[in-house]
């Protein structure tokens, strides 16, 4: 929902970044306001996944120039965990399996870390149980997944649902969904999309990074950006995604 009077949650200016000495982002500009849903589309290697990892603070990527502010806070002066506590959330394209760390214990630890940050009381295991049972409905997940190790032995769809469950628990200001639709069958895609939609409020925002238009049928974007060679080369409304689906990316790249 576009409201040009709402507050700016993410302001990225002329962002340049490299990985292993290779420049990937070559000057990205993006403004996201509260209440908005953005989609960043592009071919493989265009830099869209790099963009999400740079914002989240992945150690393999080096910022070489530009700025990024989350709700007015300079992101690049914060460690990855401080960005998360400031309200940034990254749903991973390939969620990592962590044998030996229970899903429920991690969720509670992460939640209580945020509660501390906000100056609020931590929840004990019983209180947290009530919260998590409520949130788990958002992604239609079987509660038995809570007692299992994080993502261990989960199917692709279950892993993505688990990411959205984490988002539901942490209630970020800005969520970046990196290729959340990859590897999902149509039922899982619908569940994940419903989950994300139910979490949208006028006070938060979502940036979806995706290759295909498919996801955007379920989570309807206010803005669609096309990334190419490390820059955003075109911005439009949701109809741009349909045009990309029909015509491919070459015409945008040719025009850019």
């Amino acid at each position: 929902m576009i409201n040009n009077d709402s507050k700016v949650l993410l302001e990225v200016k002329n962002l340049k970044a490299e990985v292993a000495g290779v420049e990937i982002l070559k000057g990205v500009d993006l403004t996201v306001r509260a209440g908005e849903v953005h989609a960043i589309m592009g071919v493989n290697g265009s830099g869209k996944s790099t963009f999400s990892k740079v914002l989240a603070g992945h150690p393999d990527y080096t910022v070489k120039g530009g700025t990024a502010a989350l709700d007015g806070k300079d992101l690049f002066s914060l460690a990855a965990e401080e960005r998360a506590r400031a309200g940034l959330f990254l749903a991973f394209q390939y969620p990592v399996e962590i044998p030996g760390v229970s899903n429920n214990a991690l969720l509670r630890l992460a939640y209580n870390t945020l509660q501390n940050e906000r100056g609020l009381e931590e929840l004990d295991p019983l209180e947290f149980e009530d919260l998590v049972q409520e949130k788990i409905k958002v992604v239609e997940m079987d509660p038995s997944f809570l007692d299992r190790s994080v993502n261990e032995g989960f199917s692709g769809g279950e892993k993505k649902r688990n990411e959205i469950l984490q988002m539901a628990i942490l209630e970020p200001k800005l969520a970046i969904l990196d290729e959340t639709d990859s590897g999902l069958d149509i039922d899982a895609l619908r569940i994940v999309a419903n989950g994300v939609n139910s979490l949208l409020t006028p006070d938060n925002a979502v940036v979806m990074v995706t290759h295909y238009q498919r996801l955007l049928n379920y989570i309807v974007p206010d803005y669609v950006h096309v990334m190419d060679s490390g820059r955003i080369v075109k911005t439009g409304g949701k109809e741009l995604a349909l045009e990309l689906e029909a015509r491919g990316y070459d015409w945008v790249r040719a025009a850019a």
């Binding site: 150690p59 506590r85 962590i98 870390t113 945020l114 984490q166």
Partner: peptide, 28 residues
């Protein structure tokens, strides 16, 4: 490294994240 970054991206600091992963390795 991926697991460490994942935990930090959920708000856990470096010491906590490493403790958790070390314990997880031992837990088996």
């Amino acid at each position: 490294a991926d697991a460490l970054f994942f935990l930090k991206s959920r708000g856990l600091d470096d010491v906590r994240a490493r403790s958790l992963l070390t314990h997880a390795f031992a837990a088996e």
